[in-house]
């Protein structure tokens, strides 16, 4: 190394004890350093070190899986910020929404969260579409496709549970339309075919106070209990499952031989 290069501030930084304690391989300049920087980082280590040429092209993957993940992260961060201000009760939910737009500095968290959620639904679909069109669900990747379908369902459910939280007319009626279907579940909903069969004499086991709709809403209609249930599912329950499944999804991509390609 020449002295001239040594005087470069970035070079000096990269050689410093602090930097090297964090990123061991220094500034990634040489081929070896570049490989090490991927290997040594928790986050970059989601990737392999080297990839076939087609796999890094935008026209192959459209980056859709990655963008879905990115949007999920954006939603997590904005969601945490929203939780500072929002109280899931019939009394406060709606007024907290108004305050979020009017009182809170940088009041576009709600916008980013809502539009980001719409965007994530679209990117998941497009990602699935890409995976289908490249036939990437074929062996050995069958199971990862299945994990993906569960992720898709959970993404829709996350979106749906979040829809209720503003507690405005749009929210409760959209969720009413959605949850009304639950009462028609065969055997398990009180207006579903077969539910009448689950009875002992005069006692119906599946009635308006014990069917799946009741379980979903914590009541007969969309009210206080439903708001709390949807809030807990939206902020903790579903994200928790989604994160576990995403971990499996990413792990499996690597274990199934990396991104698919022609042989």
């Amino acid at each position: 190394m020449s002295d001239k290069k040594k005087s470069n501030i970035f070079q000096r930084l990269g050689e410093s004890q602090v930097w090297k304690s964090i990123i061991r391989s220094g500034i990634p300049r040489t081929r070896r350093q570049r490989m090490m920087s991927v290997l040594n980082s928790v986050f970059l280590h989601l990737h392999p070190v080297r990839l076939p040429r087609h796999a890094v092209k935008v026209k192959f993957t459209w980056c859709m899986g990655g963008l879905t993940f990115f949007l999920f992260l954006v939603l997590t961060i904005t969601g945490i910020l929203l939780m500072f201000y929002y109280r899931p009760t019939v009394e406060y939910a709606y007024t907290d929404m108004i305050d979020l737009g009017e009182q809170v500095p940088l009041g576009i968290m709600r916008e980013i969260h809502r539009w980001g959620a719409h965007a994530m639904v679209i990117t998941v679909w497009l990602h699935m579409f890409r995976v289908f069109m490249t036939g990437s669900y074929k062996p050995p990747r069958e199971f990862n496709w299945v994990v993906g379908v569960i992720l898709l369902t959970l993404t829709l459910l996350l979106s749906f549970t979040g829809y209720l939280l503003p507690w405005d007319q749009l929210a409760i009626w959209a969720v009413t339309v959605g949850s009304n279907m639950a009462r028609a579940t065969p055997f398990l909903g009180h207006e579903g075919p077969g539910a009448a069969l689950l009875a002992l004499g005069d006692i119906n086991f599946v009635n308006i106070g014990s069917d799946v709709k009741f379980a979903l809403l914590g009541g007969r209609f969309v009210g206080e209990a439903a708001l709390l249930r949807f809030y807990v599912l939206h902020c903790i329950g579903l994200p928790f499952i989604v994160m576990i499944l995403m971990a499996i999804h990413f792990w499996r991509i690597r274990k199934d031989g990396g991104i698919s390609g022609p042989t």
Partner: peptide, 30 residues
């Protein structure tokens, strides 16, 4: 996403009223 969020306010309709259903009541678009 930022342009979209700055340009378009997230909708908020009147406070929830279980007694008055809007017509049409639509499920979320998906």
């Amino acid at each position: 996403l930022l342009i979209w969020s700055i340009g378009l306010e997230a909708p908020l309709e009147g406070p929830a009223n279980p007694a008055e259903s809007p017509n049409p009541s639509k499920a979320p678009w998906y």
